[in-house]
């Protein structure tokens, strides 16, 4: 067992554990903390895949910006006593279990059928070049220039929308 596989197994186990903890926690703040741990595990997996830029962005954007917003909203709504929120486990749980089993079968079928033999593999020296700021930035500002500009408009619209939605009605 190589070191890389060992690191992968550790990170994967941690990612699954934190994800399960996120769903099972009764307290919303504990859920948020578990999810932050999950994001750090995913950042580690991105590093294992030689995607340096995305590993940094994962921590900065997800674990930083988005989760701060979530924790801030939890604090703002003061959900301390929501732990006894009525959690029903009826038909929906059955539905969820069914969907997940179906999904699992499909995924196992697809994963077993995946055979990639061409291209650059992560061990290859060229693979380290793909995830750098330079190479991703070059793709973003040439091939994906229009989607990049559209993303800017989307973020502007989201900022305005969030302000209007969260603003108190004055009339």
């Amino acid at each position: 067992m190589s070191t890389e596989l060992l690191v992968f197994v550790f990170l994967a186990a941690a990612a699954i554990t934190t994800a399960v903890a996120m769903v099972l926690q009764r307290n919303a703040v504990m859920s948020a903390i578990s999810l932050i741990g999950n994001f750090f595990c995913l950042a580690g997996l991105y590093l294992l895949l030689r995607a340096q830029l995305l590993a940094v962005l994962e921590v900065a954007v997800y674990a930083g910006a988005i989760m701060v917003l979530v924790v801030f909203v939890i604090m703002l709504l003061n959900l301390g006593d929501e732990e006894k929120l009525a959690e029903r486990y009826g038909i929906r749980t059955l539905l969820a279990a069914g969907a997940v089993v179906l999904f699992g079968v499909e995924v196992v079928y697809l994963v077993m059928g995946t055979k990639i033999t061409s291209g650059i593999l992560p061990g290859h020296p060229d693979a380290a070049v793909i995830g750098t700021v330079e190479s991703v930035g070059m793709a973003l500002f040439t091939r994906f220039l229009l989607p990049l500009q559209a993303t800017g408009m989307l973020l502007l619209a989201a900022v305005i929308g969030a302000l209007i939605l969260a603003k108190k009605r004055t009339n």
């Binding site: 995607a51 995305l54 060229d126 793909i130 991703v136 793709a139």
Partner: peptide, 16 residues
């Protein structure tokens, strides 16, 4: 990473 194509990572940028 496995296909050696940067498009996937650009797409992840947009998803973020």
């Amino acid at each position: 990473s496995f296909l050696g194509d940067v498009s996937g990572q650009a797409l992840v940028f947009f998803v973020m």
